[in-house]
Design a protein around this nucleic acid. Structure first.
Length: 433
RNA sequence: GCCCCCGUGGUGUAGUGGCUAGCAUGUGGGCCUGUCAAGCCCGAGAUGCGGGUUCGAUUCCCGCCGGGGGCGCCA
């Protein structure tokens, strides 16, 4: 590893040695002729001691003037101490990058609101409880990538800007593209399909955009989608298995490498699920929801229904996961593949702890039928130019799914707002920072 | 798109149709040689904006702005 500084978590192995520790002042205590600093970096917390007689007087005076959340760099000797963490640093040289003493969020009591914390994320992230969320998020993405690479998948990077406007019902963001109007993608769907026709097994981790004014704790205008697409499948079974195995691999990693972050957050890592996950058809799910007296307006399952289903599988199968398969074409996109002579699609959603975290299915690969389904959805085939044409030239049967990284992270950590797991969330009211 | 709730020092909050608008923490100054949510003394610091009702509004009413939540839609 390239040496940059001595991380606080590494100090236990460096007792008696000179180190260079960099971080932020979390607390300052003046006890007569001794000053203590509690400092934090992204790996932990430690204490710096300024003791008159032990260090030069000018260093003592400097230490006295520090304000909370100032950035500091300390060169000094690590020694054991009767303190939290069992060690302290005796400084030789200290650099302070002072903060404005009036802080916009409260770093000690953690009483600030989420909105205020998001405005000042760079301060917020100094709290180990906050940075742990992003370590866990990073591990989830890493595990996703590792598992799919191990299964012969290729990581791809498809455009976020394109001429194709609507693939589903969701509204899209318009972008000025020189003299044309382009759109931000709602998902990498169309491009991962085109890619799979040659690469056979692909995945992508990237942003997706929805111009919908939904003010909820589980929606954003920009979110991160972990997509896969696989060629040569004849039903959705391999898709279910791939998802189950991917999730198991992610959870294993969280339970091993992620343990320390769950400890900081005082939360339990997710328990290992047993596979296969319980499977229910859309019809069966609807029946249960109606049976519990939840009003059903359209054909999509409302949030209250998702919670009811969670209670149901938890009790009946002791599972936190539930597959819902065979959705009506009415609530799926034009590219969903129907069963023969049916308006039911070969598709699935996965609920985890009562929230939809994955959606996918088998895709229609037959040119004429795909075109017909576009018309059925009141989309104009001529707007889909080269995308649609590709299906004329030996397009393999295929399917795939996407996991919402933000939602999975939120559910794994049992947080109550998706904005907690996104560094700089985009919702209808937030375009900054 | 619809509905509900909230807006008081930097931060988090209490309270009030009139009286010095209270508390915690931070912040400025002082005391203290082992603090670790340290303790003690002193100081500065607030009613989101606009309009209305009223002798008087931070409080009541309306609008705007900001924040939180639910529904719808969606993933």
């Amino acid at each position: 590893m390239v040496y940059i500084k001595d991380d606080i978590e590494s100090l236990d192995k460096k007792l008696g040695r000179e180190v260079r520790v960099c971080g932020w002042v979390l607390r300052q205590r003046i006890v007569g002729k001794i000053i203590f600093w509690r400092i934090v970096d992204s790996t932990g917390e430690t204490q710096v001691i300024f003791k008159r007689g032990e260090i030069p007087d000018d260093l003592f005076e400097k230490a006295k003037k520090v304000t909370l959340m100032s950035a500091v760099e300390i060169r000094g000797i690590v020694r054991p101490a009767k303190t939290k963490g069992g060690k302290e640093i005796v400084p030789k040289e200290v650099t302070i990058i002072p903060t404005d003493p009036i802080l916009p969020i409260d770093p000690l009591n953690r009483t600030s609101t989420l909105s205020q914390r998001l405005n000042y994320r760079s301060i917020d992230l100094r709290d180990p409880k906050i940075s742990s969320i992003f370590h866990i998020r990073s591990l989830i993405a890493q595990a996703f990538r590792e598992y799919l690479l191990s299964q012969g998948f290729v990581e791809i990077h498809t455009p976020a800007i394109s001429i194709y406007s609507a693939e589903g019902g969701a509204d899209v963001f318009e972008v000025k593209y020189f003299d044309k109007t382009a759109y931000l993608r709602q998902s990498p769907q169309l491009y991962k399909q085109l890619a799979v026709s040659g690469l056979e097994r692909v995945f992508e981790i990237g942003p997706a955009f929805r111009a919908e004014k939904h003010w909820t704790i589980r929606h954003l205008c920009e979110f991160t989608s972990m997509d896969i697409e696989v060629a040569w499948i004849n039903d959705i079974q391999p898709l279910l298995e791939l998802a189950e195995e991917t999730i198991k691999y992610i959870f294993e990693k969280l339970r091993s490498e992620g343990k320390k972050y769950f400890d900081i957050l005082e939360k339990e890592p997710p328990s290992m699920p047993t596979t296969p996950f319980p499977v229910m058809t859309w019809k069966e799910a609807i029946a249960i929801i109606k049976d519990r007296g939840i009003p059903m307006e359209g054909k999509d399952i409302p949030p209250a229904g998702e919670r009811v289903l969670y209670e149901y599988v938890k009790k009946r199968y002791d599972s936190e996961f539930l597959w819902i398969v065979d959705w009506p074409f009415e609530v799926r996109p034009f590219y969903a593949m129907k069963y023969p002579n049916s308006e039911t699609t070969q598709s699935m959603d996965l609920l985890y702890r009562g929230l939809e975290i994955l959606t996918g299915g088998k895709r229609e690969h037959r040119y004429e039928i795909l075109k017909k389904q576009m018309l059925q959805k009141k989309l104009r085939p001529d707007f889909f130019g080269y995308y649609l044409e590709a299906f004329k030239y030996g397009f393999p049967p295929h399917g795939g799914w996407a996991i919402g990284l933000d939602r999975l992270t939120m559910q794994v950590l049992q947080l109550d707002n998706i904005r907690e797991v996104v560094l700089f969330p985009r919702d209808p009211g937030r375009l900054e920072p």
